[in-house]
Simulated scan of single mutants.
Amino acid sequence: MSRPAPRLVALVAVVLVVTVGVGWYVLRAAASHRALVSSAPSVASTDLGSATTVPHVVFRSTLPGTHYGEVAVAPLTDPAGPRAFTDAACDQLDTVGTTTVCLRVVRDVVTRYETAVLDASWRPTVTWPLPGVPSRSRLSPDGGLVATTAFITEQACSKAGSSTETRIHRADGTDLGNLEEWALTVDGKPYTATDRNFWGVSFVDDETFYVTAASQSANATWLVRGTVSARTLTAVRTGGEYPSVSPDGTRVAYKKLLRTDAGQKVWAFAVLTLGTGTETVYDATAGTDDQAQWLDDTTILYGLARADQPGTTDVWSLDVGTLAARPTLFIPGAWSPAVVR
């Protein structure tokens, strides 16, 4: 019997060490949330028609059971209470009015990935392929534009350094392009490195949006403002990932590197006030890895995985109007929330 090569043994050892380290960190980061999760009541079903006639939140249900992965709806008056289930299943979603963008993995003889725009009946009006596993999706405030980010599969990756593909479409499926093809300006100069990468769009309106840009060769990440008609991108700040614009357009929330513990990056949410350039970091959200969604002009929502229940996530809320605020469980067993008023 042949013995494994020393380099292979070393690689396996490194993978095991990293896996154990990541597991230890996730357990630590979620410890403060576990007590609230365990005390959350079981969630019952309610009628879909009545749930969508009042202000509500749309989300992916991650509670174990037959409805796992389905799009669910709950009234804003009781988001943690009974939820209504649709016929749609999504991995990432966003909803504006009666339009929903749904990123999903389609498991068939050959697994594929796609974007579907759903109507009020939760049926697709148009679909188009994604180059890999769904990451994030956002609609513009009037539902006219669709932004998608997907992790690129090895076969679809066309250049070194690319790990995601972010594109903007019109809701009818018209492709406005891959952001890597748009003109990027950093520090007042064109930035043309071939390893530019973008992810996590958040729209201000049908013309303006924010997104994360990064370059391995520059060892830098930027918060970028984009202009749809001109197909331009301008770096406005170093650092900050997965931006989310507040409903009134005055602030942007994003995840920011807080510290490094035992070699593991610890992220927390920060909020930038656009008028003053003031950034506030909320240490209470340490351990997050999500793109925030705004409940209102002073409260953000975000997902967090349960360390002791793989595949189950919860949506938390944080009042960013006060630095002393603590996260509150908003929806147990949920992911990718979208607020509809």
Rank of each mutant, 00 (worst) to 15 (best):
Q264K: 09
V204L: 07
G161F: 15
D319W: 00
D91G: 05
T174Q: 13
V126R: 10
R251Y: 07
G161H: 13
E180C: 06
V271K: 03
R196M: 10
A218H: 10
S39N: 09
E114H: 07
R225H: 08
T100L: 03
K159E: 15
R225N: 07
H67Y: 08
T212H: 04
S163T: 14
L139V: 06
V224L: 10
T278W: 02
S39Q: 14
V146A: 12
L179N: 09
V133P: 05
G49S: 09
P310I: 05
T111V: 06
E181A: 12
T164A: 12
T66W: 05
A30I: 06
E207I: 03
S140F: 08
V15I: 14
C90M: 04
A307G: 04
V281M: 01
D91H: 07
F209S: 04
S39Y: 04
G143F: 14
V266I: 14
A218F: 08
I300K: 00
I300E: 00
T194Q: 13
T298Y: 00
L274I: 11
D296W: 00
R341T: 01
G23M: 11
V271N: 02
A120D: 12
G23C: 09
V201S: 02
L184I: 03
E165R: 15
G275L: 03
T276F: 02
L329H: 02
S202L: 02
T238K: 13
T278K: 10
A150S: 15
L48E: 13
R326V: 02
A213Y: 12
V71E: 07
P124M: 08
R7I: 13
T174E: 14
L8C: 10
G65F: 03
T149R: 07
D297F: 00
R196P: 08
L27W: 12
T280F: 01
T185F: 08
T260A: 11
G65E: 05
T285S: 06
T234E: 15
R167I: 11
Q216C: 07
A270T: 11
T115L: 08
R83L: 01
H33S: 12
V109Y: 05
S202T: 04
S32W: 03
A5T: 11
L223P: 05
L103I: 00
W199R: 07
P327C: 06
Y191L: 10
Q155E: 15
A160R: 13
R3I: 12
G81W: 01
R60T: 09
A220C: 06
A150L: 13
T19W: 11
P79W: 03
Q291R: 01
A44Q: 15
Q309C: 00
P75Q: 05
T288V: 14
A160G: 15
S42H: 11
S162Q: 15
V58R: 01
T149M: 10
